[in-house]
């Protein structure tokens, strides 16, 4: 099998996995899912590091470093912001809060 065919297989199979994993998702989670997927494509950081490492000229080095900065912001910021969104879903009280809690939780 030629290496191009290997890449193509990986690509096609990944498309199907991507379709499959998100096919049933409630509207509640659309925003965090978009944000999480956004963080995952920050993995371009790995590519940015690789090309910067192999840079031969100052132009290549400069562009590569800019790419590393942008990719890091995408990846790290993306995961942190998604976590902040999801933090609010956890520990949800199953029982209704009693009325005496009124007004006590405004921070």
């Amino acid at each position: 099998m030629s290496s191009n065919l290997v890449w193509l297989s990986i690509f096609v199979l990944s498309v199907f996995i991507g379709f499959e994993v998100v096919s049933k998702v409630s509207t509640t989670l659309h925003t965090p899912l978009m944000s999480g997927a956004n963080a995952i494509h920050g993995i371009i950081l790995v590519g940015a590091i690789t090309v910067t490492d192999h840079a031969d000229t100052n132009l290549q080095l400069g562009l590569g470093i800019a790419a590393v900065v942008l990719a890091t912001i995408n990846m790290v910021g993306g995961f942190v912001v998604t976590d902040r969104m999801l933090e609010m879903f956890k520990g949800k009280p199953r029982v209704k809060k009693s009325v005496d809690a009124v007004g006590g939780e405004t921070k």
Partner: peptide, 27 residues
């Protein structure tokens, strides 16, 4: 990201990029 994965010969970038591309389209 998937396309740069092809150029850089990185399976990881292809898989991650394609996952986001496909799930993003569905979303």
């Amino acid at each position: 990201v998937a396309a740069s994965g092809y150029v850089l010969q990185s399976t990881l970038l292809i898989v991650a990029g394609t996952l986001v591309g496909a799930s993003g389209t569905i979303l």
